[in-house]
Design a protein around this nucleic acid. Structure first.
Length: 730
DNA sequence: TGGGGATTT
């Protein structure tokens, strides 16, 4: 039985020039290209064209450190590994350059070891004598795992010489010289220490990702450099900055920091052979499926990772792949299809990390989560559809706005990142389902987040430290329209007055680690006597993952068990019911350790039965604890509860979501009060298809229509009672 | 009838 008869539309293979195992014909690449081939073959850092005289290395001694107990054999093996990293050969040059320059831009390819080694080189060269070396990461898991690795390499316990700080978790102490932290955490430290005077060196890693927090941090670092190192200053406590990035934006970072020196470090990735299609594809799902089977039939063992935009595409491709795998001849390796996306249950996410059984081939269908956040072992083949979903906030003139969540072409840097996922353990292959021309036409890197997100929270926080976003020297400044929209929003919730001055209320709102709208609801709950309820609700809204899991093929079962949790007024009180339902399970007999464990098991089982994401509930509980502390500092009682009364809760939420309200129209559609937009209630809402006079909602998202998500029914009179609503009308 | 991915004293 020939493979081509299995598939409906596979008469022509997409990739004709790959080498089937069966026919060992000569390989003649037509459009395939190995990107590693064009990379420089030199090792160690090579320098940017403008060479400057190099000063002698500074003589410093390494501070004495407490050693962790490690056998000599293990310790020397670790040091041997360090010496074998590509960056090790450039150690002295790196120390010399970073010592000599105020700002250094370091371009390091994947696998160069820059993130673990540079801080240690600087430590060993004595650059952390006066203060710490701080290394920022966009993601928490990176900060914690890097700190663990580096403390092992230093032979000191975690939290000793090497530590980390991320939200809800800190392992750092008086001895800490090297601290890994999230960029958000360091931005927060700015509030209490505007000059970051505890740090001698700040290393900004993954700067190419251009997250909102990285950009705000870079702007502040530029200011701090002027203040701490500026001419005429005594330079008692100078700061050094190292910006680390993938290759794309090196010159831009360099220009931003007054033509800072650029250093390059070659990486150690296995070569990845890249193929493009000869013609552009109209149906990437079908193309992905045909390409997978082409690999499966022709190519040696190795798992396949397919990048897709979202859950819907993943599930649809999963069905097709399963259907056609069943028709494969019996002697073919079994196909094991594993989906991977953020909203997946934790237990199912674990499946991608399980070793592939002998005689089978794993096919992972993943979103962008596999591009940076997780690394899947065993992948040898990558299929890149060239698409991803991108969220972009469109600020409206009335202080409300909406997110678009649309499938778009990826960028060159994303395409290279995806390809690199095939070369982590050995030589790999990447099949791009787009032409080489299409690749060349892709944008170099994603637009910085600061140009794509709501600025409400960022502006409020900047105002609290006396900074004006329009005067701040950012790498990319947002449009005036986006700034004006955010200012209007801040005015509506009372955070600023009509002269754009921060109000006392605004300062209180900024003291909560929440979006200003949610913080406004918390403040409103004080007078309404429902702080306990509001904290339970906003802590879930502030969590990074969704509360309710959805498994498409169990839809009716899910609806049945959820019915008990659904509140007639909508999603916010349904959230509250869920948080409370979960937290009362297994509490009765938590008095002993044994019973405490039983309680945890009972709660896990409850979450499983109700298709509720326990990870979200645990994260929400952490956030709630943090919010309780914020409440105490702001001087109000977080325990105060309104019992079963729903009205105060909805009214408090309405204060925060004043600009996110809509009224029903005679034809049964909802029209927002801030603006003329017709909005539809999202199908995932408990309010979907319900007709009520007035609603508030958490957000608007445009996919194929403008949907309101997180919807509650409110009394129309609530809106009139909000000062903000009247102000806007006036 | 539909949910890219991070993050906060």
């Amino acid at each position: 039985m020939s493979f081509t008869t299995v598939l409906p539309s596979s008469n022509s293979k997409l990739f004709k020039n790959t080498t089937p195992m069966s026919k060992k014909h000569k390989f003649k690449p037509q459009f395939g290209r190995n990107e590693n081939d064009r990379k420089s073959s030199g090792s160690g850092p090579s320098h940017s064209p403008a060479k400057r005289p190099m000063p002698p290395p500074q003589a410093h001694s390494t501070p004495p450190r407490k050693k962790a107990r490690l056998s000599n054999g293990v310790a020397s093996a670790i040091q041997e590994q360090r010496r074998e990293l590509p960056i090790a050969r450039g150690r002295e040059a790196l120390i010399r350059e970073i010592s000599a320059n105020e700002v250094t831009v370091l371009i390091g390819e994947t696998g160069s070891g820059k993130t673990t080694q540079v801080p240690q080189y600087l430590l060993e060269a004595g650059l952390a004598q006066a203060g710490m070396i701080g290394i920022t990461q966009p993601r928490k898991v990176a900060a914690t795992s890097l700190a663990a690795r580096v403390s092992l390499e230093q032979g000191t316990p975690l939290g000793g010489c090497v530590g980390y700080a991320v939200r809800f978790d800190e392992r750092a102490g008086p001895d800490t010289r090297v601290k890994y932290l999230t960029d958000g955490m360091l931005t927060r430290e700015l509030l209490g220490d505007p000059l970051l005077s505890r740090y001698s060196v700040i290393v900004v890693d993954e700067a190419h990702e251009r997250t909102l927090r990285t950009d705000l941090l870079l702007a502040n670092l530029k200011r701090i450099l002027r203040e701490r190192n500026g001419s005429g200053k005594q330079k008692e406590n100078p700061l050094k900055v190292v910006v680390m990035s993938a290759t794309m934006d090196a010159e831009k970072f360099s220009r931003f920091f007054n033509d800072a020196k650029i250093l390059y470090v070659k990486g150690r990735q296995h070569p990845v052979k890249i193929y493009h299609t000869s013609q552009s594809q109209t149906d990437y799902i079908d193309s992905a499926m045909r390409t997978f089977f082409q690999i499966h039939v022709d190519q040696p063992p190795g798992d396949v990772l397919i990048f897709l935009p979202g859950q819907e595409d993943i599930e649809s491709l999963q069905k097709s792949l399963e259907m056609f795998s069943r028709q494969l001849p019996i002697d073919f390796p079994t196909v094991l299809i594993v989906p991977m996306f953020a909203a997946l249950q934790a237990s199912q996410q674990q499946d991608v990390f399980k070793p592939t059984p002998k005689g089978s081939r794993k096919c992972i269908l993943a979103t962008n989560i596999a591009e940076t956040s997780i690394t899947i072992p065993g992948v040898r083949y990558v299929i890149d559809t060239g698409k991803s979903k991108e969220k972009r906030y469109l600020a409206g003139p009335t202080g409300s706005g909406f997110d678009t969540l649309l499938t778009r072409d990826i960028t060159k840097s994303s395409a290279m990142q995806r390809a690199g996922r095939a070369g982590r353990e050995g030589p790999g292959f990447c099949y791009r389902l787009y032409t080489e021309d299409a690749f060349k036409q892709m944008a170099a890197a994603p637009e910085p987040e600061i140009l794509r997100c709501s600025l409400v929270q960022a502006i409020l926080q900047l105002m609290c430290v006396g900074q004006d976003i329009q005067e701040l020297e950012l790498m990319d400044s947002p449009d005036d329209d986006a700034i004006i929209s955010a200012l209007k929003n801040l005015f509506i919730i009372g955070a600023i007055d009509d002269k754009r001055r921060l109000t006392p209320l605004g300062r209180v709102l900024a003291s909560f680690p929440l979006e200003p709208a949610h913080a406004r609801a918390v403040v409103a709950s004080k007078d309404l006597g429902c702080t306990s309820e509001i904290l339970d609700i906003v802590s879930v809204l502030a969590s990074s993952s969704k509360l309710f899991l959805d498994v498409s093929d169990k839809r009716s079962e899910i609806a049945d068990v959820r019915r008990k949790l659904v509140h007639p007024s909508g999603d916010h009180l349904t959230l509250l019911n869920t948080v409370r339902g979960y937290s009362t399970v297994g509490i009765a007999d938590a008095s002993t350790q044994e019973n405490g464990k039983a309680g945890r098991n009972a709660r896990r089982e409850w979450a499983r039965q109700h298709f509720v994401n326990e990870r979200t509930l645990r994260e929400a509980a952490n956030i709630r604890d943090q919010l309780r502390v914020s409440c105490e500092r702001a001087g109000f009682d977080w325990k105060v509860s309104c019992g079963d009364a729903e009205e105060p809760v909805l009214l408090a939420l309405s204060h925060g979501l004043a600009q996110n309200a809509a009224l029903i129209t005679p034809d049964g559609t909802y029209k927002q009060t801030a603006g003329q937009q017709i909005v539809k209630i999202h199908p995932s809402s408990t309010m979907a298809d319900k007709k009520v006079p007035a609603i508030i909602f958490d957000e608007l998202v445009y996919t194929n229509q403008i949907y309101a998500r997180g919807v509650s029914s409110i009394q129309k009179s609530f809106l009139a009672s909000l000062g903000a609503f009247n102000t806007r009308k006036a």
